[in-house]
Design a protein around this nucleic acid. Structure first.
Length: 427
RNA sequence: GUGGGCGUAGCCGAGUGGUUAAGGCAUCUGGUUGUGGCCCAGAAGACCGUGGGUUCAACUCCCACCGCUCACCCCA
């Protein structure tokens, strides 16, 4: 007996309406903001992620699904979208396209993590990137995509968190300042924070341990140490957000786990998806293109986990359109009737009527029970008696309307009329 | 990598040492030689997660392993 590998899930038919609805909304909103779809491979050269995401990050150090293929190439299942999309930008010469290049995609992401509520080893992301502009108005636009998507999905009580993490000109000095502040508090901080100081000092600001909270409260804020360019960028973005009346929280503890982020970082938080609270996270990555061997190219984007979005929709009771079942089920009795049903079924489908039929020569009763359970509004019953008379019985499965006998040749026309399908233009 | 909780049919779930391991949902068949929903009857479906131990006797107690799950860490 096999089980799905740890951290993977089956998305069953009963959940598909949520997924399809989310994909529909994504496509609509992306189009509204003039973002085009781009699909990239599910696996890339391992080096792309090592260089792009950065050594010392959890993703690269311990979470990648990496293997050597039969040709001896080092391959990694994508642990995030941005590096691959930037690779595609460079490889396809997108710098010759109108700038910025605005793309989105959806698909599976792989990270070898310990599983818990809202966290999987294979999860699905909606990802959007705007590459080629350093204008804070682009930051605003990208954030607005998230804003509009989530509000159209009907979410309530989401919280936008915003911060700036500076750039290579100002961040190192800030990190130095933060580290020396922490060195002075060394005996008061938790073990994890001691480790963070070595590996990824900014992350100490995100610590949740009780005893670390006073230390964090007294820590220097990066906003006080941004270089003029970063400070200008940040205040301009805030001005735009304010002008649109967008509520957001400046969170100087918001930091990201990937190396390529510069300036703007943001997340969208929600309750109800276990201990995880981010449904969306992203930021600016002006240094990424150079890091992976391209011309210096600014960019900004975000990823959003669809499993978490669906969890939230259920949590918040978001209503979605229900997909229709088969409109009609064909029920037969006897082999000649079965043959005729198979032909009729084909004709119904060619006419655009969603139809199924009973199988396995089960009793009329069993076939009708099944039709009822499926939820089809109509059943067509074809037995020996009807067949010899070139007739068929139409049965309304929703009410108590009496059965009707139709001419077999007339079935498609009558059904179309019943189902409200316009027959005038198809005749 | 660390810690907590939990493993009885497809799903939910009773059973805490003693004959054939409740019940419900779902599935299949029949009650109507050819008519669904409601109802009734019946059938099928469980090596009680796996292995070891204790005992005259283990689903039940003990140990190990595996799996699921939640949390830390980290992130979407």
């Amino acid at each position: 007996m096999f089980l799905a590998p740890r951290g993977t899930i089956d998305i069953l038919p009963e959940d598909q309406p949520y997924w399809l609805y989310v994909y529909d909304q994504i496509r609509r909103v992306a189009q509204l903001f003039d973002y085009q779809r781009l699909d990239i491979p599910i696996f890339e050269d391992t080096g792309l992620y090592v260089r792009g995401v950065g050594q010392g990050t959890d993703i690269v150090d311990k979470e990648m699904y990496s293997f050597v293929d039969k040709g001896g190439r080092d391959i990694t299942l994508r642990p995030e979208f941005t590096a691959g999309i930037m690779r595609s930008y460079i490889q396809n010469g997108m710098r010759t396209w109108p700038q910025p290049v605005k793309v989105y995609t959806t698909g599976p992401i792989f990270r070898y993590e310990r599983v818990q509520a809202g966290r999987y080893r294979q999860h699905t992301q909606f990802d959007i990137e705007s590459i080629g502009s350093s204008d804070p108005a682009v930051d605003l636009e990208v954030m607005s995509v998230a804003w509009q998507l989530f509000s159209e999905l009907g979410f309530r009580q989401l919280s936008f968190q915003l911060n700036s993490t500076g750039c290579p000109a100002c961040r190192p000095a800030y990190i130095q300042k933060l580290v020396s502040y922490y060195e002075g508090q060394r005996e008061h901080i938790c073990e994890d924070c001691k480790r963070r100081l070595e590996r990824n000092p900014l992350r100490v600001l995100d610590c949740k341990v009780e005893t670390c909270q006073p230390i964090i409260a007294g820590a220097p804020h990066i906003q006080d140490d941004l270089c003029p360019e970063c400070a200008e960028h940040f205040s301009t973005l805030r001005g735009y957000l304010d002008a649109l009346g967008r509520p957001y929280t400046i969170n100087h503890r918001l930091v990201r786990g990937l190396d390529y982020y510069t300036k703007t970082v943001f997340e969208v938080w929600a309750q109800g998806i276990g201990a995880q609270n981010a449904v969306c996270g992203g930021g600016r990555y002006d240094g990424l293109a150079e890091e992976i061997g391209g011309e210096p190219t600014p960019g900004i984007g975000f990823g959003s986990g669809i499993e978490r979005i669906v969890m939230l929709m259920k949590e918040q009771g978001v209503q979605i359109p229900q997909p229709g079942a088969s409109q009609v089920v064909l029920v037969y009795h006897g082999q000649p009737s079965k043959m005729r049903c198979i032909q009729l079924l084909d004709g119904l489908r060619e006419a655009g009527i969603a139809a199924t039929m009973g199988f396995d020569d089960r009793s009329l009763r069993a076939q009708l029970r099944n039709a009822n359970r499926i939820g089809a509004p109509y059943a067509l019953v074809l037995g020996e008696q009807e067949l010899v008379a070139d007739q068929i019985v139409l049965q309304d499965m929703q009410g108590d309307a009496p059965r009707e006998t139709l001419a077999l040749d007339d079935t498609v026309r009558v059904l179309k009329a019943r189902l409200g399908m316009d027959t005038a233009c198809t005749a």
